[in-house]
């Protein structure tokens, strides 16, 4: 069952300095099944963020269409959860209040949304930090909150734009493993944008390679789960797939 489908998506920006239109996304068509984990990779400037922002509804698109469960996307909405590279936690809300924000917007009473939020915090191993403010957490912890905040809203699709790019390498690996674990438990539909080829292969069921605003190629990733770095780092299939994706990105 298709959850997300992009049809001939196109986006041009007006460049005020050149005084002309710049094409960021030329023609992208993509279908994502319910519960699928799709990684999107591609060289810098190929339009990844632009596509994600259009799906999220943050920016309008120039042509084509975006459908979520058959409905046309018009602006941001709770059916698409977003995890930001900058974390985007509300600094004036505690961790618990941050995670409970989505339910609060739906009018869920306080007791119930606190319960939901605690449940999701436990999922990310953050129960002890519930009453802290975001600036009292490490970067890795902040992004865990960012992920469960989006999940706690039960979105049809989870959109992530280089969410782990600004944490250190060790933490990143832990976060990646946690994300695969959480994904296995909840089976959300995920679009995950990254620069990091290994990360893309490690997480996904399918890797989409973009180039100059078009889909260049796609690769299925049939690695067994649960995935852990200690094992995959030696795994021949993983190495082969990574090398293959890397080649495509570099050729792009």
């Amino acid at each position: 069952m298709k959850t997300l489908s992009l049809k001939n998506l196109r986006k041009t920006y007006f460049d005020p300095y050149a005084g002309s239109q710049v094409t960021a996304v030329q023609d992208v068509s993509l279908d994502v099944e319910q519960g699928e984990f799709v990684s999107v990779v591609g060289p810098s400037g190929c339009g990844k963020t632009t596509i994600l922002n259009m799906i999220a509804g943050f920016i309008p698109y120039t042509g084509g269409e975006i459908l979520i469960d058959g409905n046309l996307v018009k602006g941001p909405g709770p059916d698409r959860g977003v995890v930001f590279q900058s974390f985007a936690l509300f600094p004036w809300k505690t961790v618990l209040e941050n995670v409970g924000f989505g339910p609060k917007m739906r009018g869920v009473p306080k007791d119930e949304r606190d319960r939901t939020a605690r449940e999701y915090l436990a999922l990310a191993g953050l129960s002890h930090a519930a009453d802290r403010y975001p600036n009292e957490l490490s970067g890795g912890m902040q992004q865990r909150v960012g992920v469960v905040r989006a999940l706690a809203n039960n979105p049809a699709v989870l959109l992530m734009d280089e969410p782990f790019a600004s944490v250190d390498a060790q933490t990143r690996m832990t976060l990646q493993e946690e994300l695969t674990r959480i994904w296995q438990e909840r089976k959300p539909t995920v679009i995950f944008i990254t620069h990091d080829v290994a990360e893309a292969v490690f997480l996904a069921n399918r890797v989409v390679v973009l180039s100059k605003g078009r889909v260049l190629d796609q690769i299925k990733v049939d690695l067994p789960r649960p995935r852990v770095w200690d094992q995959l780092i030696e795994d021949e299939t993983f190495k082969r797939l990574s090398a293959q994706v890397l080649q495509m990105v570099r050729a792009a």
Partner: peptide, 21 residues
């Protein structure tokens, strides 16, 4: 930060709620 307003919107906040929260 622009991302904060976007985060609230994508969590289902109406424009008034974004203003307030």
């Amino acid at each position: 930060h622009r991302d904060l307003a976007r985060a609230a919107q994508s969590l289902g906040a109406s424009p008034m709620r974004v203003l307030w929260e």
